[in-house]
């Protein structure tokens, strides 16, 4: 049971990451491979504040979001100049830079040693160090993120995003400044990723830079491509499948010494097969 809750919490964190990235990749058509950077900024903000300054969990989430918004504003400003494959490559670059910062800003992040002993939140006398309570809290936040995302994509703002994806020049002709829209959705997605990061740090209680590499961004991308681009339910489904996948592999009986690599192999194959046979993913409405 404890283990199921553990999986459920991981699933919720990744569903949050998937839903937020889908806003950027699926709805707006910007292939961002830098999501793990924002996830990392959220994680590190919470980790550093909780271990070093005695700030509570929830203020640290807010600060994490603010820092991520600033970072994503600057990164998004640069990335908005690119399109398609150059966009992907540029975002690749920012993830590598963010990773270098996590790894090398040792006074703040302790570099490769990581930050241990991150505490769990407490609110209204409810102690969230109980895993079940924690799960309920994360689920509530996933619900908020999901509803906010659904509101965004169904609003007129969301319709502009979709038309940017379909034909950016056409929507510019109608007088929309697409830069603002692209920047806004990029920042919204990044802020949501920061929330996921704060919860992840608080739950796992230990973070180090290896959790925020480019491979992590690829993993989040696999989630949303598998589930389906421009489909929020798809992202939740994709996260569920990919979190359960290692367990399935274990049942099939792969040796655990190569479990991580085996998982990576499956992610890679999923991407290739999806591109070959179903580029829009399971529930997707849009093909890249």
């Amino acid at each position: 049971m404890e283990y199921l809750i553990h999986l459920a919490i991981l699933f919720t964190v990744y569903a949050m990451l998937g839903v937020s990235l889908n806003l950027v990749v699926g709805y707006t058509g910007l292939l961002s491979l830098t999501h793990a950077a924002f996830y990392g900024i959220g994680s590190y903000t919470t980790a550093i504040l909780l271990t070093q300054s005695g700030v509570d969990f929830f203020p640290s989430v807010v600060l994490g979001i603010i820092l991520t918004l600033i970072a994503s504003f600057l990164i998004g400003l640069v990335l908005s100049k690119f399109r398609d494959d150059y966009y992907a490559l540029g975002s690749f670059g920012f993830n590598a830079i963010a990773f270098a910062v996590f790894l090398n800003w040792q006074n703040l992040t302790r570099g490769p040693l990581g930050i241990p002993g991150i505490s769990k939140p407490e609110l209204f006398g409810i102690d969230f160090s109980n895993n079940f309570n924690f799960l309920m809290l994360v689920l509530a936040f996933l619900g908020l993120v999901y509803l906010a995302s659904r509101f965004i994509v169904n609003s007129s703002f969301g319709r502009v995003l979709k038309s940017i994806r379909e034909d950016e020049e056409a929507i510019q002709v109608f007088g929309y400044n697409t830069l603002y829209f692209k920047l806004a959705v990029f920042m919204i997605g990044a802020g949501m990723a920061a929330i996921a990061g704060s919860f992840f740090a608080s739950y796992i209680t230990f973070i180090d830079p290896s959790g925020f590499t480019l491979m992590e961004s690829v993993f989040i991308l696999v989630i949303i491509i598998l589930g389906g681009l421009a489909n929020l339910r798809g992202s939740v489904l994709g996260a569920l499948f990919l979190i359960l996948l290692p367990e399935i592999l274990r049942f099939v009986g792969f040796p655990s010494s190569v479990a991580a690599q085996m998982r990576q192999l499956v992610y890679g194959l999923i991407l290739i097969l999806l591109m070959l046979y179903r580029p829009q993913g399971l529930l997707g409405e849009y093909k890249i």
């Binding site: 192999l265 890679g268 991407l271 580029p279």
Partner: peptide, 19 residues
């Protein structure tokens, strides 16, 4: 297929072969 599909497929190939 668009360039993006090829790019994502090559990302998959990269991940799989490395594993």
């Amino acid at each position: 297929a668009s360039n993006m599909v090829l790019l994502v497929a090559s990302l998959g190939a990269f991940t799989a072969i490395q594993a």
